[in-house]
Amino acid sequence: MGFFSSGFSGRGRSDNPDLPPGQYLTESFPVLSAGPTPRIATDDWEFTIATETGKVHRWNWAEFRALPAEDVTTDIHCVTSWSKLGTGWRGVSLDTLFSGVETSAEFTMAHSYGGYTTNVPLDDLLGGKAWVAFDFDGEALEPEHGGPARLLVPHLYFWKSAKWVRGIRMMQSDDPGFWEQNGYHLRGDPWLEQRYW
């Protein structure tokens, strides 16, 4: 601490209790992408949950949209250090999607149109903590942000919220996904700053 004060007393990152360590606030919604944006018509869209026994649960778009949906207001935290507070989503809870799924596996791999993958422990998907989201800010989710539907797991870094999600595969072990194979943390809790291995 220097002798002189700058005279400013604005809220920095350290005194905003909603910002995890090492994060800064953004009002925009940056688009991060590791590949070209898939354009998936809802007529062609499907979502699957595949269990360790080989059983596959399927929903087409109409079946998926007929499931009970929830409005979710949540903060999101990208591992590239931006955080956006109070974002508004609508989606189907993973608790709903898993309600008829029998599994003893503890880990999952989310798969996306375009080939992206990310691993998430099942405990992080259940208990009102994760959704398959189809609206953002009251509008249909744009392809650049993962539409027609993306995973939303806001208590983990946002790379876990797989855009263009097409399914979840149950795993007996916590195998790494696209970024987790190359330095990024297996779980990615922003409050523990679990960015890298």
């Binding site: 590949g35 970024w179 190359n182």
Partner: peptide, 8 residues
């Protein structure tokens, strides 16, 4: 692709 958590 460099608007990502790494270079792809």
């Amino acid at each position: 692709y460099n608007h990502a958590p790494g270079l792809v």
